[in-house]
Simulated scan of single mutants.
Amino acid sequence: MTERAAVNSQDASTHPADQPVRGAEEEIAPVAEPAARTQTPAVLFVCVKNGGKSQMAAGLLRHDLAVAGKEGAVLVSSAGTQPGSKINALSAEVLQEIGADIGGETPAQLTPEAMREAGHVVVIGAEAVVEELDGVTLERWEIDEPSDRGIEGRERMELVRDDIHLRVRELRERLLG
């Protein structure tokens, strides 16, 4: 250390000329490591009328989260590209059988804002047309359609419910890790 530097460190002078020159690495604060994800994951389920399949998926995910003690761990919503006026009664009935309640839900219109807010959109079935948005993850579930095999009514709806339920469980695992 030079004599001047030794004197300056003892005097603790605040005059700029008396301050030691610092390297650039000392002037810039180190970049912090990226923080762990703290935002609650969200998913928006979409079908055409938002009265059956997308409502079933949303109801099943909410139900599964509640049963697992993780209610609210994922923000869940649903919408339709051409929403109907009410929930499909048979959809609500077959969900009620396993403890999921969608009876109080109402169909909602799909909007770009809802898609951006969720950040993850699941389109159920081939009929709903949803345009991609930057920053939004979009996936499509081509679910089994029992009516193509002549299966109708309650049996059809139970098969649709079970197919959607398997996919919802897999999605829950992906979202929560």
Rank of each mutant, 00 (worst) to 15 (best):
R37W: 08
P146Y: 00
E173S: 08
A66K: 09
T106L: 14
L138D: 03
T38A: 15
I151A: 09
G84R: 11
P112E: 15
A58M: 02
H63E: 03
E131W: 06
A73I: 06
G59L: 03
G99T: 04
N8G: 04
G135R: 05
K70R: 15
G23V: 12
Q96L: 15
T106A: 14
V160S: 01
Q19C: 08
G80I: 06
A29T: 12
E139S: 01
I98W: 00
E127N: 11
V7Q: 12
R172N: 00
A35P: 02
V67C: 03
P30D: 12
E105G: 03
R4V: 10
V94Y: 00
E127W: 06
Q19E: 15
E71R: 09
E26T: 13
L175W: 05
L159N: 07
G135H: 12
E170I: 00
G104Y: 09
H165F: 06
R172Y: 04
T137K: 08
R22M: 13
D163V: 05
E142F: 11
A68G: 02
W141C: 02
P83M: 11
A92T: 08
A42Q: 04
N8A: 10
S147W: 15
N88C: 07
V121P: 00
P146Q: 01
D101T: 10
L60W: 05
P146E: 07
A29Q: 12
L175Y: 06
A100L: 01
V48Q: 13
V94L: 01
Q109M: 15
V168Y: 06
D134P: 10
R140Q: 08
L110N: 04
D64G: 01
Q10Y: 13
R22H: 14
R62Y: 06
G69L: 05
G119N: 02
P83D: 05
K49Y: 14
L171Y: 05
P112Q: 12
A17D: 15
G104R: 13
D64F: 00
M1H: 14
K70C: 02
P112A: 12
D101C: 11
V121N: 04
P16Y: 11
Q109W: 15
Q10R: 15
G125K: 10
E117H: 02
D11C: 09
E93L: 02
G125N: 08
A73M: 05
L61S: 06
I98C: 06
K53L: 08
G153K: 03
A35E: 15
C47L: 07
R154C: 00
D11T: 11
R156D: 07
G69Y: 05
H120G: 01
E170Y: 01
E132N: 08
P30F: 06
P34Y: 09
N8W: 05
L90I: 09
N50Q: 12
V130T: 06
G69K: 06
A118H: 01
R161D: 07
P34H: 08
V121Q: 01
T2G: 08
A114Q: 09
P34V: 10
K53I: 07
A73V: 04
A57G: 04
E33L: 13
D163N: 14
S13I: 13
S9H: 10
S147Y: 14
A89V: 11
T106C: 10
G119M: 04
S9P: 01
G72L: 04
P30C: 02
A66Q: 10
D144L: 11
V129C: 00
P146D: 03
N8C: 09
A17Y: 13
P16T: 13
Q109A: 13
S9V: 12
L176D: 04
